[in-house]
Nucleic acid binder design. Structure first.
Length: 467
RNA sequence: GAGAUUGUAGCUCAGUUGGUUAGAGCAUCAGAUUGUGGUUCUGAGGGUCGCGGGUUCGACCCCCGUCAGUCUCCCCA
């Protein structure tokens, strides 16, 4: 049989894992610096925990797990199973009778579930970060996988906009550290709601936002067409155009919006929140987060996050390098009542997510991974068999005791085969314990980069390799 | 869910209007070289041409179906 892996999944080679771990470690250090604590949740959740949280499209993309032991059901249950099966075949539908569990779709909903389940143990505001894979039954394409990793930072139990500002700081310092130039777009769901009001169609907010979100991609004409198709009136489209045409600094934009939206309570609230967030951010900003004196935080009213649980400030990160074509590499926002879905009312949260796989792809394209990530084996001991092998093992033991990553070629294979192996592995030093070396209680150390070789006592070899 | 495109050796790919036994590079193994790698040289192994059907004297090539990968739209990280 021909080996293969499921569509949209990948193997990670040793070099790739090292580079991915570099990203994880960089983020982890920042998250910890900001006082967040690690959390992990199961790969699978009860299906009912996930459904209805990600919108209609999202529900379709949840990977469901077929229940086990269906053939063992009693006859009455089998009748139920048959009728439910017909439902599944005729429409988008799921039922615990067939699929009780599903793979996690993101990290936010499982987090909310966790908070509700453990509310009595937690100190609020609760801050956590989480780095785990998620699964989506999407059609894979460039930058889109069926299994991919997210790194989420969230806090619940506080409505302070300091939280929003801190998350912006985390984004800024993380991408600065990773050497990825980014634009961090911010907007507010409340501005979008106000815009829908302005159009006289508050119920069309989702349609409006989906269309506007494509502004970068298809331009204003394309957006206007889509708005029309989605049933927005000409007057509404004109209102939207007016808002989109607002240019200038973040401050200037907010002033202009407050002029346009002065009669909308929710709009003014959104503007107020955005300007407060930016003011807090100004106090916290972790350094030069910009290249040309301009901040890389940009108020962008066309930004619309897909997930429908966001209620306040929303944020999205895109790579600002012209050379890279990639969608968003991170996003997040404020959700006022996420835990309410699980019965815990009045707990507000805000969080952002890093799309690790896309960040990896972008860093690869920009060629910004550090050259020397983690050294693997530092020295390999060649195997000359017999007494020399025993001698080699003694040296190996001493190297490891001295905390030097070392290995032995396990077979007494032909010399040049062992050398070629060391070369292919890119190991820095080769140790040769042969007859002569053993008799003198020494070892030959060959620097595989320079080709230089000398015979020294074992202790000296250890000192040499420790450097 | 809709569309485009690709499928030939372990990998990357050639393959003439449809014509004997399907090729190359890399990789692997063996040898030149039983204690000196990266560069050479010689040789060897390795293919149901994704799968099934059809057209034809004859199909890797043309037609139909099917499966898989990649990409685009939708949507999203």
């Amino acid at each position: 049989m021909k080996p293969s892996i499921p569509q949209g999944t990948r193997d990670f080679s040793p070099a790739e894992v090292r580079r991915r771990q570099y990203i994880f470690n960089t983020l982890r250090i920042i998250f910890e610096l900001y006082g967040f604590q690690p959390l992990e949740t199961p790969s699978m959740e009860n299906l009912t925990t996930l459904t209805g949280k990600y919108g209609e499209e999202g529900d379709r993309l949840i990977f469901k797990i077929l229940n086990n032991g269906l053939h063992e059901k009693k006859d009455a249950d089998k009748d139920k199973l048959n009728s439910e099966w017909n439902n599944i075949l005729s429409k988008p539908y799921s039922t615990p009778v067939v699929t009780e569990r599903a793979l996690r779709y993101d990290l936010t909903i499982p987090f909310a579930r966790y908070v509700v389940m453990h509310q009595n143990e937690l100190a609020f505001p609760f801050r956590r970060y989480q780095m785990q894979p998620v699964w989506r039954a999407d059609r894979p394409q460039k930058g889109r996988y069926r299994e991919f990793w997210q790194c989420d930072v969230d806090m619940v139990g506080s409505t302070s906009l300091i939280n929003e500002a801190e998350l912006l700081c985390i984004y800024q310092s993380a991408f600065q550290k990773l050497k990825v130039p980014v634009t961090i777009k911010v907007n507010s769901r409340k501005l979008l709601a106000a815009l829908a009001e302005l159009c006289g169609m508050p119920e069309k907010m989702v349609d409006i936002t989906i269309a506007m979100d494509k502004l970068d991609k298809i331009g204003w004409v394309g957006v206007a067409n889509e708005l029309k198709e989605r049933g927005i009136s000409d007057d509404g489209i004109w209102q939207i155009e007016r808002v989109i045409n607002v240019k200038g600094t973040n401050q200037e934009k907010l002033v202009a919006y407050s002029d346009i939206m002065q009669h909308s309570a929710v709009g003014m609230e959104g503007i107020n929140e955005l300007s407060k967030t930016l003011a807090y951010f100004g106090n916290l900003e972790p350094g030069i987060g910009n290249l040309d004196g301009k901040s890389n935080i940009v108020v962008d009213i066309s930004l619309a996050r897909g997930l429908n649980y966001y209620t306040g400030v929303i944020v999205e990160v895109v790579c600002s390098s012209e050379a890279v074509k990639m969608g968003s590499i991170g996003g997040g926002g404020r959700y006022d009542d996420l835990t309410g879905l699980f019965g815990l009312k009045g707990l507000s949260g805000v969080g952002v997510s890093f799309g690790i796989d896309r960040i990896y792809d972008v860093m690869e394209e920009l060629n910004v991974f550090p050259e020397q990530l983690v050294e693997g084996t530092k020295a390999i001991i060649l195997n000359f068999g017999g007494d020399n092998e025993t001698y080699a093992l003694q040296i190996l033991q001493q190297l490891r005791a001295a905390n030097i990553a070392a290995e032995i070629y396990p077979d007494a294979a032909k010399f040049d085969k062992q050398m070629k192996y060391a070369n292919k592995r890119g190991i820095a030093y080769v140790l040769l314990p042969g007859d002569e070396e053993r008799e003198k209680n020494m070892v030959s150390v060959k620097n595989f980069v320079t080709g230089e070789q000398k015979m020294v006592p074992v202790e000296e070899a250890i000192t040499l390799l420790r450097v």
